[in-house]
Amino acid sequence: MNEKNKKVCAVVVTYNRKELLCRNIKSLLKQTYPVDILIYDNASTDGTEDELNNGGYLAMPNIIYVKGKYNGGGATGFSNGEKLAYDKGYDYVWLMDDDGFCVNDYTLENLMLVQSKLDNAIVNSYVMGNIKDKEPTFDLGPYKTYGEILNNSVDGIVTGYGNPYNGTLVPRECFEAVGFTDRRFFIYGDETDFYYRTIAAGYTWMTSLESEYYHPINRSVFLERSFLGLKIDVKDQPVWKHYLENRNGTYIKKKYLGIHVGLRHIVRILLTSILSKDKRAKRIYYGLLGLYDGNKEYFDRQIMFNA
């Protein structure tokens, strides 16, 4: 398979992170493999469009800027961005958030080198939160440290795992097979749902350690709580996010992972709600409501965004 002439579009979803977005764009413009950039703006209110215009980005022929009429969350941003890139005929869509960036000029070229040897594969950059030590931002399947990841790689590739949507290279044929990101998720779990749909369609996920991508590790959102002598990390987040995480997580676990995982998920919902630092009763209620809605595959509840 010859990938040299394949057209790639980086889809970057953004909302009120204009400085971080520009940092990402600068890293994309330096890539040795040619890439167009489609910025999907979820109706930012921080002057993102003016920032891009003042920086000269909107005048560049390889940058496409689309501003949504409302904030539909990351799920809508990726869904719309994927479809736009697909309709424009790109061979690959490279998915990423606004707060990440390519560690060097060869991030995409190294991805394409791996992709050129494969069929029915989705290749992910190696996502790190500490560039010097190559500390992973997220677990890569069962592997939690760079040492574990490296030891379980072959020729710089870890097979079977990836970190969507952080430097994720998706062939256009994959969208034909599974569709686009499910915008109903709003935030949380949309990338996991897409991952399982691609697996069911016969795609193999791989991570290239030679393709380095940065995404920050968000340690500040977790609070450590104790329960029966056990230390448990509880997310410090608004109640509406607590609801969405539980609704979407319940849906995914029921649909893809089976009842035993679902039961553990129920216990986790209860514990993280009970151990919250504030609004405990409301968190318990909406945690259980998320469990109910996810089990019923009900995505239309709007009240939570005011909670």
Rank of each mutant, 00 (worst) to 15 (best):
L244G: 11
E245F: 13
Y90G: 07
I157M: 01
N152C: 01
L29R: 06
Y243T: 06
Y165I: 12
R183Y: 12
Y298R: 15
N2D: 08
G249K: 02
K7C: 12
K253W: 10
E49N: 11
K282S: 08
F78H: 12
D300Q: 07
E49R: 13
N248V: 00
I199Q: 04
F227S: 04
V267R: 07
Y213A: 00
N151Q: 14
V234G: 03
L20S: 13
N54F: 02
K279G: 00
L52T: 01
V127A: 04
Y196L: 06
L108W: 01
M112A: 12
F194V: 13
N62C: 11
F194Y: 14
V35F: 06
K235G: 02
D133C: 06
F101E: 12
I266S: 09
S27G: 08
K253I: 15
G262I: 08
V154Y: 07
L275E: 09
D133S: 13
L275M: 12
D119R: 12
I274S: 03
Y203E: 07
G179I: 00
I274K: 09
L108R: 02
Y70C: 09
F175V: 03
E297N: 14
D87K: 10
G56I: 03
I149L: 01
E3G: 11
D278R: 12
W240A: 09
K18R: 15
T181Y: 02
N42T: 00
N24L: 04
I274N: 09
T207L: 01
A10K: 03
G156N: 03
M304L: 13
T168M: 13
G179R: 04
G290V: 02
K132T: 12
G129P: 11
G189M: 01
V123G: 00
G189C: 03
E212N: 15
I25T: 01
K241T: 11
Y165H: 13
I284K: 06
L113R: 14
N62D: 09
R183H: 07
N53Q: 11
S153E: 03
N104H: 07
Y126P: 09
D155F: 03
